[in-house]
Amino acid sequence: MPIVRDPLNPKLSMWHFLAFYLRFWREKMDLSLTQCGEIMGVQRGTVSNFEAGRRRPQEDHMRALDKHYGTGWLFQLLLWFARMAHDPDWGRQLVKYEQEAHLIKTYHGQVIPLALQTDEYTWSYVQAGTPKDFEAEMAERVARKKSFFDRGTDVEMWATLDESVLAREVGDPTVMKAQLEHLLAMADLPQVSLRIVPFKSGAHVGVDGPLQVLSLDGRDIAYSGAQNGGRLIETPGEVRELSVMFDRIGAKALSEAGSREIIKRYLESFQ
Rank of each mutant, 00 (worst) to 15 (best):
T130V: 10
N228D: 14
V244S: 03
L216H: 04
S13Y: 13
I39Y: 04
S259G: 03
M84P: 01
R144S: 00
I262C: 04
S201R: 12
A178T: 01
Q93T: 14
F17S: 04
D247S: 11
G72V: 08
E268W: 06
P198T: 07
R5K: 15
A226T: 11
A222R: 01
D172M: 00
L114P: 00
V207W: 09
A253P: 05
Q117R: 12
P236S: 14
K132Y: 08
G37K: 03
W15M: 03
G45R: 12
D162I: 07
I263S: 00
L22F: 06
M29V: 02
G129R: 13
R54L: 15
R151V: 11
P131C: 05
G41N: 00
R195A: 01
W15Y: 14
L254C: 04
G258C: 01
F20L: 02
W15D: 03
Q212E: 09
F148P: 06
Q43H: 14
D154H: 13
Q99K: 14
H86V: 09
Q99T: 06
M62T: 02
A82Q: 03
S32W: 03
R265E: 10
W15L: 06
A82Y: 04
L31K: 05
S13P: 11
L114F: 04
Q271L: 08
V197E: 02
A82S: 15
P236N: 11
G230V: 10
D89E: 13
L79V: 05
Y125A: 10
Q35W: 11
A185I: 08
L33A: 09
Q271H: 13
V4Y: 11
V205R: 13
L94N: 03
M157H: 08
M245L: 10
L189A: 09
G229P: 12
P198W: 08
A253G: 07
L194K: 09
D6A: 15
E261H: 12
R55I: 10
